[in-house]
Structure formats: C-alpha cells, structure tokens
Design a protein around this nucleic acid. Structure first.
Length: 344
DNA sequence: CCACTGAAGAGGGTCAACGG
DNA sequence: CCGTTGACCCTCTTCAGTGG
C-alpha cells in the first residue's frame, strides 16, 4: 500500500490480475448485484473504465487494506446498501491499513438533482482523510493541518477513474449515465478534455457495454413479478415519451426506423426475404380468416372507402394509365379464356 | 437502442358485372 | 365483343407497441 511509485496503470493491471486469479470468488460475491466478473475484466482492460464493486473489492487484496465505502443516505435505495460497507481482502490476505471513500458528486446537491431530473445520485467517489492524519503533500514535504475531513479527487495530478454505481432497478439509470458522460467531458477532470475524441468515444462505449451486461445479468436473475413491473414501467415511459414528443421528433424517430428497416431489408438474403414475406403473408391470412363475419365486413368496408378515395383523388393521367393497364389485362384474360374454350 | 411483431394502409392485380 | 367499373385479393411498406 505505502508505495508511492505505484502508478494508477499498475494498480489497474494488478486489480485485473487479482480478478482473473480469483474469478470464482468475486463472482460469488457480487454477480447477483452487477453481473458476471468476466465481462468486467474485459472492460477493465480498455482504458478509461470506471471503478465499482469488483474493482474496489479486488483493490483490497492488491493493496492489502480494508476499504470503507460510505454512500450518503440521500435518495437511498435498498440496492445501494452494498455500497455502505467495509470491503476486506479475501480471507487468505491480512489487511494492514484502512482506506475510506465517500461516494459524492461534483456538483452541490441542488445542481446535481437538477442535472439528474430530480433524484440525487453520486457520480464519483473521493478518499476521506482524517483531520489528525499527517501526510506528505504533493507540493512539498510540509504537513498541512486540516480543520475537518478533506476530500481529494486527484492523485499524482491525474484524475482517479471511477464508475458510479448503476443498478437495473434504478429508474434513472440511463439518465445518470448520460449525466456521467457529460461530466466526463466537462467537469470531473480537465485532463479528460485533453484526450482525443476517440478516447472519449471508447470510454463511452465501455460504459455502455458494462451497463448492457449488467442489465442482461439483472434480467436473467429477476423474478416474474419484477419482470412484469419492469416491462410495465418501460411501456409507460415509452408511451409518455411518444405522446409528449414534437411532430419534428416524431418524424425524426420514424425516419430513423424506416432507414433501419430499409437497411436491414437490403442486407437480407433472398432466402431471408422470402421467409419474412411468408411470415407476413401468414399473419395477414390468419387475421383475415380468424376474424368474425362482422370484422370482415368492417375490413371490406374500409377497403372499399380507400379504393373509392384513391380513384376520386387520382389525376386524369393516373386514371388513363390505370385504365390502359386494365384494358390490357382484360384483353389478355379474354384471350386466355377463349383459348381454354377451344381446347375443351 | 435495436429487433421483432401485429395491425393498418398503399397500391397493383383479378374477377364479375354492366353498358355501349 | 370490348372498355370500364367496383369489389376484393395479395404483397409490401409503414407505424406503434413490445421485449431484450
């Protein structure tokens, strides 16, 4: 632990090795909260990932210390209990020091709530230092005195990379992720601003991958009742969003959907296309044959109205084209019938 | 965010009826 | 007999809803 030459990169590599070495142990500890450790390990190998339960727990072993995690009881949910916890090294390792971290936010509570559409949630953690503790300043060997516990977000002049807790049942998880993305590029660290655009994009992708895996894992473990509630909530959110969207947004959404459909269809093989159309045909036929006589009547009525409207709205040119086609078809039909008659 | 599904509409084709 | 009309069928596209 007391090794000032250890860089953040080295810590990260050691943590990854620790997670890989004792994968089964960490999986059994936290997979029910945030998904499989295997996925987290892969994500950690990429630059700019954030720390969370697995990383903090593994860090205990790497540093041989206890990490006391404190999560403020603001908008506290039951699933956050795990974050108000003392993480200890795996049984075979004896801790020789203690670290305390506080989950926090870079903005004051009012602004954080405003940015998060109401609920408060942390977007990073900071180490807590005792007021009695003497340490070596980064700027010299003086021992400053503090009147109260201090927080320290930067170590060795580099930002401490962390991942905010994200749980599937959080109604605002997506929003929080977006907010985090914003701070990654705006407030948390000025050094992030200096990173290339591709680094930021990669970081965003890592977060999305982690979130996806967590959501997948959480879905696999949820009860039927949880599933029902989740889908119900999502349905309401979607309906509300659509009913509130502007016409411009609606058009944009539909355009995107159309492009996606067209792209999917242009990429499908002849066989896939055949299967898709066959399915659609079956659905149509099934709908029509399963309907009651009344439903059929309504359907035909609607169709009739559409046809009438179509004809009454067509231009003279369109009408002439239609009649010309019809004439040719009639001729062909009659010729065919004549031929059949002579054969009989 | 994306893929998939069901429902409805658009538009081309078929067929029977009708009138010149 | 031929052209036209209207009802209906069939296929494909579009859109809203749903689930992963």
């Amino acid at each position: 632990m007391n090794n000032p030459t250890m860089t953040t990169d080295e810590l990260r590599v050691r943590t990854i090795i620790e997670l890989m070495t004792n994968e089964a142990y960490y999986d059994s500890m936290y997979s029910q909260f945030i998904g499989s450790v295997a996925f987290i390990i892969k994500a950690m190998c990429r630059n700019n990932t954030f720390s969370e339960l697995y990383e903090i727990s593994a860090l205990c072993n790497v540093l041989k210390c206890n990490i006391r995690s404190i999560y403020p009881k603001i908008d506290f949910r039951e699933d956050m209990t795990i974050l108000n916890n003392v993480f200890t090294p795996a049984p075979r390792v004896i801790a020789n020091c203690n670290i305390a971290i506080l989950w926090s936010h870079v903005l004051n509570e009012t602004d954080a709530r405003a940015a998060n559409n109401g609920p408060w949630s942390s977007n990073h953690f900071v180490p807590l230092l005792s007021s009695a503790m003497h340490y070596t300043s980064e700027y010299g060997n003086k021992s400053p005195t503090f009147a109260s516990p201090e927080k320290k977000t930067f170590k060795n002049n580099t930002p401490t990379r962390i991942r905010s807790p994200e749980f599937e049942c959080s109604s605002s998880s997506r929003r929080r992720l977006d907010i985090m993305g914003m701070y990654s590029t705006q407030s948390i660290s000025s050094s992030v601003l200096q990173q290339s655009q591709s680094d930021i994009e990669e970081q965003r992708q890592v977060r999305l991958d982690v979130l996806k895996e967590q959501a997948r894992s959480s879905r696999m473990n949820e009860t039927a009742e949880h599933r029902r509630i989740r889908l119900e909530n999502q349905k309401h959110r979607d309906q509300s969003r659509r009913s509130n969207e502007t016409e411009e947004h609606r058009q944009f959404r539909l355009e995107k959907q159309k492009i996606r459909n067209q792209s999917n269809q242009s990429n499908e093989t002849a066989e896939q296309r055949q299967i898709r159309l066959e399915k659609q045909k079956t659905r149509n036929q099934s709908n029509q044959s399963n309907g009651t006589a009344e439903q059929r009547q309504i359907r035909l009525e609607k169709q009739k109205t559409r046809d009438q409207s179509r004809r009454s709205n067509e231009t003279e040119q369109q009408r002439q084209i239609r009649l010309e086609k019809q004439r040719k078809r009639s001729e062909a039909n009659r010729a065919k019938k004549k031929l059949e008659k002579t054969h009989i």
